[in-house]
């Protein structure tokens, strides 16, 4: 088992989590019309043999999406943080007035 130190729940087995893949890919803004940007986001992965930033969701715990830094060569985990701290992509839409 990988042991993921959930910042909310403490160290837990990885099978409490749902894997979300590469966290370094940048999701285009929701209204970005560029097909190339979406193609790259959905399909292209650097897939490194080495340190990898990746999403995990603590589904049977706090349900937070996390960003885990893990080495794909030996599965050693270097860091875990909430995904929510990532800077958001600017939307071109006006924000809700509420």
């Amino acid at each position: 088992m990988l042991r993921i130190e959930c910042p909310c729940c403490g160290p837990r087995d990885h099978d409490e989590f749902r894997y979300g893949g590469d966290a370094s890919v940048k999701r285009p803004a929701h209204d970005d019309p560029d097909p190339e940007a979406w193609y790259r986001y959905v399909y292209i992965r650097t897939n490194p043999a080495g340190p990898h930033r990746e999403f995990w969701q603590h589904v049977t715990g706090c349900r937070q999406w996390l960003v885990v830094e893990r080495d794909t060569r030996n599965h050693a985990i270097a860091a875990v943080d909430f995904a929510r701290k990532l800077p958001a992509r600017k939307s071109t839409l006006r924000k809700s007035p509420a």
Partner: peptide, 11 residues
Amino acid sequence: YNSYAQRGNLG
């Protein structure tokens, strides 16, 4: 999960 290690987990 992404891996290049040729080993699996116990779960």
